[in-house]
Design a protein around this nucleic acid. Structure first.
Lengths: 336, 336
DNA sequence: TTGTACGCGTTATCAA
DNA sequence: TTGATAACGCGTACAA
């Protein structure tokens, strides 16, 4: 609509210099109330927006933060992204979301582009790739994934936010056992991920405490998190594993697919097989039967990640502890 | 990892000037094979990445495209976004995704930030807001939404990609009737949207052709697309509308919730009530009973949108027709 | 309190 | 085929 004007023109109209205009815009340095008022009025009147490109070039970083995520169509990840974006926007940061599709090559290309764009920081959401060394000495926040797992010589300049995955797995195991399961299986998507390891650990602990043996062959690993893979894994469990009466899917998306398979094949849930998910996406709550699951604090993930990375950018990260672990919650519904 | 170096330093190392370096990088202007080779080697060796901020400032637009979308957690939108991103990335564009949450205020703020970032174009995905006048004379592509509906004095510099919504509604109506429905209802999310109007139109045409009367009171409008709202609408239909034996949800997400409500309340689907969705998200295929729906060509949306907006940016849009309508497909599953 | 002038890293112009 | 230099729009010493 408006032809784009610059500080120079604003300065002319306000009868002052670019320096002063810049000062009032950024509210630093000194200037009289009178000139401030004049400048502000003109800015208001013409709806002037500073050119972020020029500003960023000057200050050597942009008001943009990159987010790396395996798959934006996974409702759980999408929820985190939405929360992160919402809170970053409040602090006037935009986000560039990069879908890695679990591919290291795509991740690397996009990461390099992010760096070329001079993003101020990068947030990794449960991204298992390790080709991320290049982002070192850039503020970095990991959500739901432990970078120490895949990276050796790690810069200290990073923060990590996760839920209590061990407790989550433990609660899941307890619930299954409590509802009568004696021969359980689990389905996960990448055994090398720290989150998965911890959930498994907690899960096995619960079984052990209940005096239930676990056969490692009953732990199924799928490559991709999707309802389709949930079906495939469940088909395998039903057809190749004996006497399973409880399944722990380490992602709701997998569970939704698995549940569909069980029902379609006339297997009563939870009477014959009890089903647990993980994440608590809204679909889980609203399908029938609704899915018993472990809730992850998505909103808190997003809020914390946004606050932290901005603090890191501004060099005010000292008051935080490097790693934060948030509590999970067992949500009992109809599948157990 | 690598300390960031600039054209200047590259030039020094190659024993030439910044101008020449810039020329070989952008492959325009003339330069000898020899110097090209030298420069390229150094670039390779140091993994030099041009500073996009500086470049964008100079050429007056960035390699970034904005995407406005109502809700990133809706699987249908997420699918489109993924497709768009994938194809834009192939042309070396990054994307800034803006969640408007159906809020005009948030949309406006983010749009202004996009403009301040000097994005090269904007893609609107089914975004009903009309506070978008400011993006005029910027390449713009609308997916799944007709901008003429909400904007009066529209710039010509835009393209529109949609599916055949009339046909989609028509197929949905036909399928419901074919399977025996005689008293149908529909659930949509914003009657003012062009997509909804067209789907409704096609739907009513199918009913009319079948000689079935439609009571306008049986058209339910919800404010937000979510499984929760699907449940709410269905609860209303079941409790307040008589003899409904078929429901057309104009979004799979709504249908998934509605289906959950029906099953939980012991209403046989499809025996007593037939259910149709729209979009064909993967959840629909993998739950039980699987959802009969109308497939929208998501992949094609993304691919076309990416190609078109880049062409528009490069001033090569003349060969395209302004509005493209893609075919839909009826996917018959278990709910009809 | 204000203004001048430089530089951020590129690309583009013009002259050589 | 090259190179010096002027922009792009902004923030910030440094001077006044």
């Amino acid at each position: 609509m408006q032809e784009k004007l610059s500080v120079k023109e604003i300065a002319e109209m306000a009868g002052t210099s670019v320096a002063t205009v810049s000062r009032v815009i950024n509210q630093n340095g000194r200037f009289s109330k009178a000139t401030e008022k004049r400048v502000l009025e003109i800015i208001e009147q013409y709806n002037y927006q500073p050119n972020q490109l020029a500003r960023s070039l000057r200050v050597q970083h942009s008001q943009v933060i990159g987010i790396m995520v395996p798959d934006i169509t996974n409702e759980f990840f999408a929820n985190i992204i939405r929360a992160v974006q919402e809170h970053l926007l409040l602090q006037n940061y935009m986000t560039i979301i990069c879908n890695t599709n679990e591919s290291g090559i795509e991740a690397k290309k996009q990461l390099q582009m992010l760096l070329a764009q001079k993003v101020s920081g990068v947030i990794y959401i449960n991204n298992g790739e390790n080709d991320v060394l290049e982002s070192m000495n850039l503020p970095t926040v990991y959500i739901d994934r432990d970078p120490r797992e895949t990276q050796a010589n790690l810069d200290e300049n990073y923060a990590m936010i996760e839920c209590d995955n061990i407790q989550g797995g433990y609660l899941a195991g307890q619930e299954l056992v409590r509802k009568g399961a004696r021969k359980v299986a689990y389905v996960c998507y990448d055994k090398t991920l720290s989150t998965i390891k911890k959930r498994t650990q907690g899960f096995l602990t619960a079984l052990e405490e209940a005096g239930i043996a676990f056969d490692p062959a009953y732990g199924i690993d799928v490559e991709e998190v999707s309802t389709g893979e949930g079906i495939r894994a469940t088909e395998y469990i039903v057809n190749h594993l004996k006497d399973v009466d409880g399944i722990f899917y380490m992602s709701d998306v997998l569970a939704v697919g698995g549940l569909g398979y069980l029902l379609r094949n006339g297997i009563p849930v939870p009477e014959k097989i009890r089903v647990m998910g993980f994440d608590d996406i809204s679909t889980s709550r609203n399908i029938y039967p609704s899915l018993t699951t472990i809730r992850q604090p998505v909103e808190e993930f997003g809020c914390l990640a946004a606050l932290r990375i901005v603090d890191m950018i501004n060099g005010k990260d000292s008051t935080w502890q490097q790693r934060q672990r948030l509590p999970v919650e067992l949500i009992v519904r109809e599948t157990t």
